[in-house]
Each structure stands twice: as C-alpha cells, then as structure tokens.
C-alpha cells in the first residue's frame, strides 16, 4: 500500500515546532524576543501562503505585498479612525476584502503566464503602494499609522503572542490539509503539466484563481496581525521589497517543501535581527548569505535535509540495518 511516512514526519515536525513556540513566553528573557518570535510566525504564514502559489502551483507572484499591505492597513485604518474596538473586526474584514480583491485581480493577472504573470502581479502591487503613498489625507502616506493597539483583552504582549500563535497554527493546519487534499494534488499537477490537466477535464485557470484567493486571504491575516505586533503600519508593507522577501524566504527554506518557507522566514528574520543590530550593511550580509545558500543548498534548507535523510535511509537499508 502507499506510504504515508513522509506526511507523518512533516506533520509531527510541524506540531513540535509550534509547541516550541508555545513554550517561548515561559523561557524568554525579554519582550523583544517575543516580538522577534511573533515576526517569525507571521512572516512564516505570509511565506507559506505565497509558496502555495509559487512552490506548489508554479505561479511566481511578485505582488503579494498588495494583500499583506491590505490586511495591515485594514486593521491600521479602522483602529485609527474608529478606535481600538475595531481591531478584530477589521482583521477579518481585511481578510474578506483581500479575498474579494484577489477575486477581481486574479482573472486579470491569470490571463498571462510565466514572467508576464509575474510582471503584472508586480504592477498591481505597485499600484496599490502608489495609492497608499499618495493618498495622504486618508492613509498618512509615508508617515504611516502609529499607536495601533489591539483591544484591551489582547493588549498584553504575551496574550497577543498566544492569540497570533493560535491563528498561525490554524492557518498552517489549513494550508497543510490543502496540500494533502485532492485539490493540493491538482495544484501540483498544474505546476508540472498544465496542458495535461485540461485533458483530465479540469480548468487550469479556475484552480489557479482558487489558490490565488486563498493565498491572499492568509496573507492579509499575516499583515493584519503584524499591525498589532509593531503597533504600527507603514507603506513599506505594500512595497515590492516585501513581495521579494517572501520569495527569498521560500527559496532559502525550500520551495518544494511544505515547511520550507517557515524555516526560510525564521532564518531571514533572525539574520536581519542579529546582523541589523550590529551593522547598517545588513542587506549586504543577507545577500551574501542568500548567494552562498542558493549555491550550496539549491533545494533550500528543508529540501536538502529531506534529501540527506532519504540518502541515509537508503544506505542503511542497503546495508540491511
């Protein structure tokens, strides 16, 4: 019968990692560590949602910042204009709005494939960025919005951290179930051979649109929760470099692995954090690390680990161990 071993390993690894994140508030020595951990969690959701498009379905979107910014600014603007009570409703409104936006933009960008698709997603995201920067009266432009507070019940840093951890866990679980479902298989088939998928009687673009919308919704969740971590939102969240970061995270961690982007996000955030505190040239350091890793570990950190494990397993079974 078929082996589910790989699936189980991944599942238990995921549960173990999230459990470690749950223990962190008990062992932390500063609130700052909590903020870094929360950043890792939220960027992980962002990168994993992106990788459902990129690594799974083969759609290289260079415009996911649009939905990240949309989610963040939904929370930011509602909290700013309507008050803190609106934080949670705005989080979910931002997700719904993001899904609707993706449903409108998706059919347009999906008319193109390959690098043209990529350029068009970038164009839409930059359009969003441009609007937010220029519409100063409403968005505060480049000044961003500060003082965004989660509602009283979540105002404690540790409580907010656990709140994020729960939503992140649910998101990861949901994306995991998608990738193990028939729909996930369909998405991988679309990446590998879209014209054959049509010969299964299935519509390629419709399924691409489905995952594009799902990805946008979880991206908006990550953006919205981020507004509460930093207590602020800024236009950089909409900028192309934000879209670029999740691409790097996915490649770094392994776009062919479910948890690859999670690991990639952790590595990037930690490097940015450690190096950024010591030198202003941190982006150069990131560049060098990226270059080295891509050359030495072309399948990403998780991808290479899995391959190493498979090789060791094969050797030991060949020895009859």
């Amino acid at each position: 019968m078929e082996s589910n071993k790989r699936g189980w390993t991944t599942q238990w690894a995921g549960i173990a990692v999230l459990a470690l994140f749950a223990l962190l508030p008990l062992v932390k020595t500063s609130d700052y560590q909590l903020t870094v951990a929360n950043n890792v969690l939220l960027w992980a959701v962002f990168a994993m949602s992106f990788n459902m498009l990129f690594g799974v379905t083969g759609m290289l979107s260079f415009g996911q910042a649009l939905y990240f910014g949309f989610g963040a600014y939904s929370v930011g603007l509602f909290a700013y204009y309507q008050g803190t009570w609106w934080f949670l409703p705005a989080l979910f409104l931002g997700m719904a709005g993001s899904g609707i936006l993706a449903l409108l933009i998706g059919p347009l960008v999906l008319r193109l494939t390959g690098v043209y698709f990529t350029m068009l997603t970038l164009a839409f995201a930059q359009l969003g960025w441009g609007i937010v920067v220029k519409w100063y009266d409403f968005t505060n432009g480049d000044d961003g919005i500060q003082g965004i507070m989660p509602p009283a019940a979540l105002s404690n840093k540790v409580v907010y951290y656990y709140f994020c951890l729960v939503l992140v866990s649910v998101s990861v679980w949901f994306l995991w179930r998608i990738s193990r479902s028939p729909f996930g298989l369909m998405l991988r088939c679309i990446r590998q051979n879209p014209s054959r998928v049509r010969f299964l009687g299935r519509r390629v673009k419709r399924n691409q649109l489905r995952i594009y919308v799902i990805s946008a919704v979880f991206t908006a969740l990550a953006g919205g929760l981020m507004a509460g971590v930093d207590n602020s939102v800024h236009t950089g969240m909409w900028y192309w470099t934000t879209s670029g970061e999740v691409i790097l995270m996915s490649i770094l961690g392994g776009m062919g692995q479910f948890f690859g982007p999670f690991v990639g996000a952790a590595i990037m955030i930690l490097i940015e954090d450690m190096v950024g505190a010591r030198t202003e040239f941190w982006s150069m350091v990131i560049g060098i690390v990226m270059l080295t890793m891509v050359i030495l570990l072309p399948k990403g950190v998780v991808g290479e680990l899995v391959q190493l494990k498979e090789r060791l397993f094969k050797r030991s079974s060949a020895l009859g161990v």
């Binding site: 179930r177 028939p182 729909f183 369909m186």
Partner: peptide, 12 residues
C-alpha cells in the same frame, strides 16, 4: 472529487 479541500487524498 479533484478539487475537494481538507479531506486527505488517502481518504478518497
């Protein structure tokens, strides 16, 4: 059943 979410493939 090709676009069913959530339910794992092996359950089909």
């Amino acid at each position: 059943e090709a676009t069913v979410f959530i339910r794992p493939i092996s359950a089909h």
